[in-house]
């Protein structure tokens, strides 16, 4: 068990060392001292598949690009083993040509990447003034109107939501105002023989819950016939008056 995990991690490192199938192929060519213009397809295909198989045995995720390359190589290998039929006027198509072009291009860019890495090495030790802020930090850089990219907007949105998390939180106690409580209060507020407006009952700047509670209470009292109300026109003051029944029923 221990050996298995050791093996798997070493193989993982091995596969992770490659930047994709082309990188692995170039490694195999160099290892076996193969000329890029004279690739023994069968041999290279076998070697490539060996890597893939080993990775698969160890249950590693194999990027689909490797599988595509494995399929391409297998196809090339099978073609190279079969006798080729050529018809008159048909040009011989070298199946390896496209792959060679890809390998040459990739190899060139890999070399360039190495050169860039050397430049990076040098230039991270050189500081210019001013402008270091732009060069090194992720701090916001001023953006001209119309120049913001989608990424800039997303960054801005991110920084906003980060800021939001830091806002001081406040606990709000929810106060329950029951209808019976309201009725008890109203008992003293609605004096027999006098008119009181709804606005007076709820008081100045009432919480929404207070308005709702008292409104429902008033509907309830109307239903019971304990009060009667009067409103001159829509949205105007609601005037409330106690009826005789309040005292009788309660």
């Amino acid at each position: 068990m221990k050996e298995q995990s050791f093996l798997s991690s070493s193989c993982r490192i091995e596969l992770d060392a490659f930047e994709g199938p082309l990188d692995l192929l170039l490694y195999l060519l160099r290892r076996d001292e193969i000329d890029i213009y004279d690739i023994p397809v069968a041999h290279v295909a076998d070697q490539f598949l060996k890597y893939i198989r080993r990775a698969r045995e160890l249950d590693l995720d194999i990027a689909s690009e490797y599988l595509v390359m494995a399929a391409t190589l297998t196809k090339m290998k099978s073609k190279s083993l079969l006798p080729s039929h050529r018809y008159d006027g048909e040009e011989e198509v070298d199946p390896g040509a496209a792959l060679r072009r890809q390998l040459i291009l990739y190899r060139t860019f890999r070399e360039i990447a190495e050169e860039l890495q050397r430049s990076e090495e040098t230039w991270t030790e050189i500081y210019t003034s001013p402008g270091e802020r732009d060069r090194w930090s992720c701090d916001s850089i001023e953006i001209e109107p119309g120049q913001a990219s989608l990424l800039d907007l997303l960054k801005a949105l991110n920084s906003l939501s980060e800021g939001e998390a830091e806002l001081p939180s406040q606990r709000i106690q929810r106060t329950l105002l029951t209808i019976s409580e309201c009725i008890n209060t109203l008992e003293t507020r609605i004096v027999p023989g006098k008119t009181i407006s709804f606005r007076e009952i709820i008081g100045p700047e009432p919480a929404r819950s207070r308005i709702v509670s008292y409104f429902i209470t008033i509907l309830e009292l109307i239903r019971r016939g304990w009060i009667c109300c009067h409103q001159a026109y829509p949205f105007s003051e609601i005037e409330l008056q106690r009826t005789e029944r309040w005292n009788v029923d309660s």
Partner: peptide, 8 residues
């Protein structure tokens, strides 16, 4: 880019 690098 991917066609040159052969990888995502």
């Amino acid at each position: 880019i991917e066609s040159i690098r052969g990888v995502n």
